[in-house]
Design a protein around this nucleic acid. Structure first.
Lengths: 178, 178
DNA sequence: GGCCGAGGGGACCATGTAGTCCATGCGGCG
DNA sequence: CGCCGCATGGACTACATGGTCCCCTCGGCC
């Protein structure tokens, strides 16, 4: 579903990919919609788990740069194809399944929350100036990331993603204490 | 197709929306794929036309703010639903129809080009510092816009879009001559 | 070892959708 | 005014796909 998109993925694709049978699928999920929601939940948990690893100890600008580098490198492996696991789902499902949309919205909030918590630690320790707003900075980073993913996916070139993230990092940098 | 997504739109939907018949459709388009490509081309032309209106005379930071405000206001009308006409298509088609992806990639380049040309005028006239890079700034604005669209669409709240664009504008502002 | 019940495999069904085709009507031309 | 040809509407077809169901296997228990 990540590769082909949710709507373009048939249950036979799922069956083949999971080495199961139809009855297995319908034992676990009442219909495709619920299966998709389970995929959303699983993907969400997976991405957040990974991000927690990068961000839960974030407390310096260098850490943010490492975060950026890791994401760019991961995306470079496939030349940007498929985009962000959550972003792609969000774009396709937002106006199609409100429950999935809500789950994805929560995930983005949580993801931003990880960034915001790290930025707040930097703020608390005086790395960031008092007038910096960790939440807004986190939203900005998130948007730059998602926009970067989309442009990279479309262009088959990760440079726009790098430029976007660098812009957001520069923005954070502008709030560093001298 | 903008509202429901390309894959979720049936030819009967198209027929109903366009008040035509199947034979009409197949007179003009050999198959659905070509129809989708025509939609991409039409949407692209429409968005670029609109953006040309906003950007072709851009030559000041205030102009950029007006551009931001217009986009935010337009998106606020539907609470962010459906996202960016080009971004949604790009996300859904990028890994499904390479020709459509290429068209959309060109469109993004052209859209960024409009921004870059305006920023270059600001650069030429000394509004922007010599070390500013109009192309990179344009990419940053574009990514913030697309990321903002996606977050707004998912959250049904345009605030993330505002925050993202404001971040990008702040970034441009940081290159203004004192 | 035989019987029984649950779980699973995969054939099967119903339906929605892309794509075809032919009867009809309408405009243009003699 | 009548004929011809072409665009058009929309019924029709083939097929993919979501969803069902029955038979068989396999493990547990007597």
């Amino acid at each position: 579903m990540y590769v082909k998109g949710v709507n373009a993925t048939t249950l036979d694709d799922v069956r083949a990919a999971s080495n199961t049978s139809k009855s297995q699928l319908y034992n676990h999920f009442p219909d495709k919609e619920e299966l998709v929601r389970a995929v959303v939940a699983a993907r969400t948990a997976q991405v957040l788990e990974r991000e927690r690893g990068y961000l839960q100890r974030l407390k310096s600008f260098r850490g943010l740069v490492r975060w950026r580098d890791a994401l760019v490198q991961r995306n470079a492996l496939r030349n940007g194809a498929y985009g962000c696991a959550l972003g792609s789902l969000a774009s396709e499902l937002a106006d199609q399944d409100d429950q999935a949309r809500a789950t994805l919205a929560e995930s983005f909030v949580e993801w931003e929350g990880l960034l915001a918590a790290g930025l707040r630690r930097m703020w608390d320790s005086g790395v960031l100036r008092p007038d910096a707003d960790p939440e807004k900075l986190a939203t900005g980073l998130m948007a730059a990331l998602q926009g970067g993913y989309l442009l990279a996916e479309t262009a088959h070139d990760i440079k726009p993603m790098e430029i976007a993230l660098d812009m957001a990092l520069d923005h954070v940098k502008s709030f560093l204490t001298a």
